[in-house]
Structure formats: structure tokens, C-alpha cells
Simulated assay, not measured.
Amino acid sequence: MDAFLTSLFALLLAEMGDRPQILCAALAIRYGRLTPIILGLGLATLLNCLISAFAGSMVNQWISEEPLRLFYALSLLLAGIGMLAWRRPVDLLENWTIGPFWTSFLGLFILQFGDKGQFILAATAARTDAWAFAAAGGWIGVMLACIPALIFQEKLAQMIPIKPIRYTVGGLFLLIGMALALSAWGIL
């Protein structure tokens, strides 16, 4: 249950105001139909979560607890830096003409692949034997972050203070990551 809840909350927070949310809102505005976009988002996110959690479970078998804690700390530190740093603009896939499902599925799969959420999820799964629970929690976390963007679209930015949330979560990730790193090195 720890892997499920950790990945759920970490990915929910990591995706707030991030590029997948922005792309989801743009696709909802463009197509006006939510069902194929939600299905594309769900499948793309599920595949990415399964890939990263399974990869993390492979790491679990190769290294001991202290390096795993350091790996998790590094994933949080990099996520924190990513949330505080400048982001390049999101390609809104305006030239893609393959329909709402395929555009959302392929666009979001590519956008999420190698993103900070995938590393957090891999590091979470690496620390447990329950990689499927980590994948499920991560999937639900991303879906909970992105579905409001589909429903509220550009109004979401007016309803929720995105920048303060990103800065707060980024700082929180940095603090937790630094504490875990110091603990892994035996300093704390």
C-alpha cells in the first residue's frame, strides 16, 4: 500500500501545471470531445506507468537499500529542479490529423516518456516488491492531475494557482530528496 500511495501523491503533485496537463487542455479545446482524449490519456499513462514501474522492479533486484534510497532521492531532486526551472513550450500537436484518440495517446505517451514522473515512479517501484501497486498509484495520480485539465481547460489556470503550486511542490521535492540523500550517505 505504501508504494501505491507514494506514487499516487508524488505523480499527482508532479503533474500539476506540467506539460501533460497543458496538452490535455489544448486537445480538449481542439476536439471538443472528452471521451477519446480520456481514453488516449489513460492508455498512454498506463503504458508509461507499467514500463517505469517494471523497470524499477528490475533495479530492486540488482542493488541494496542505501543505493535505492539514493536513487529515490535523486528522482525527487531532479523533479524538484524540473518544477522550479523554466519549461519549454508544449507542442500542441496542431498538425497531427490522426483523430482525438490517436493524437492524445501518441502525443501524451511521447510527452510522458522519460519525464520526471516516470523516474519518480521507477524509483518508488525500485524500493518495493509491489511494482504493480506503484504503477496503479502512479496511473491514478496522473489521471487525477490531467482530467480536471480536460474538463476545465483554460479555466483551470484561473481556478488553481498553478505557479505557486509548482514552486511549493518543487521545493518540497527538493527538501525530501535532500533529506533522503543525506540519510543514504549516513549524514542525517
Results as ranks from 00 to 15, higher is better:
A135R: 01
L43N: 08
D91T: 06
G141P: 02
L150A: 09
W102L: 05
I81V: 14
L68F: 09
F119R: 09
I98F: 06
L46D: 14
K116H: 00
R33M: 14
I151N: 00
D115H: 00
A132W: 12
P148K: 10
R88L: 02
F105K: 05
L27Q: 02
G82K: 04
P67R: 14
F101H: 02
A73C: 12
N48I: 09
Y31D: 07
P36N: 13
F133S: 02
L108A: 08
A55Q: 09
I151E: 03
L39A: 14
L84T: 10
A136N: 08
I81K: 08
W86G: 08
L93Y: 07
A130T: 04
L50R: 04
A149Y: 00
W62K: 13
N60V: 11
L47D: 00
A149L: 02
L144A: 14
W131G: 10
R33G: 08
W62F: 15
A134H: 03
A122G: 06
W102F: 11
N95Q: 09
T103S: 13
L39H: 06
F133A: 05
A25Y: 02
S104V: 01
P67T: 15
F133I: 00
L92F: 12
V90L: 10
I63C: 14
P36Y: 05
E94Y: 07
L47P: 07
N95T: 05
M83K: 05
M143Q: 09
L46W: 11
L27A: 08
Q112I: 14
I37E: 01
A73W: 04
L50Q: 08
E94G: 15
A85E: 00
A44Y: 02
I147V: 15
F113R: 05
L93G: 08
Y31R: 06
P100N: 05
I81C: 10
L78C: 12
G114N: 06
P36M: 11
I51Y: 12
I81R: 07
I81F: 05
A136K: 00
T128D: 07
I147T: 12
R33L: 12
I29Q: 10
A130G: 05
G82H: 12
A145N: 06
C146R: 06
T45H: 03
T103F: 12
T124H: 06
L41D: 04
G107Q: 03
P89N: 10
G141I: 07
W131P: 10
G117W: 01
L121G: 09
L47H: 02
G32R: 06
C146F: 00
T35Q: 11
A85C: 06
N48E: 01
L84R: 11
M83Q: 02
W86E: 12
A85R: 13
I37Y: 01
S104P: 00
T103Y: 04
I81G: 12
I110F: 10
A26K: 08
D115L: 01
F152M: 04
A123L: 13
Q112S: 14
S75N: 10
I29W: 06
D115K: 11
E66V: 15
A135G: 05
G82V: 09
S75P: 13
T35A: 14
I140H: 03
V142W: 01
A125N: 06
M83W: 00
T45Q: 07
K116N: 01
F105W: 04
G138W: 00
L68D: 05
T45M: 06
G80E: 04
D129A: 13
G114A: 14
L50I: 11
I151D: 02
I147L: 15
G138Q: 03
I110V: 15
I63T: 15
L150P: 06
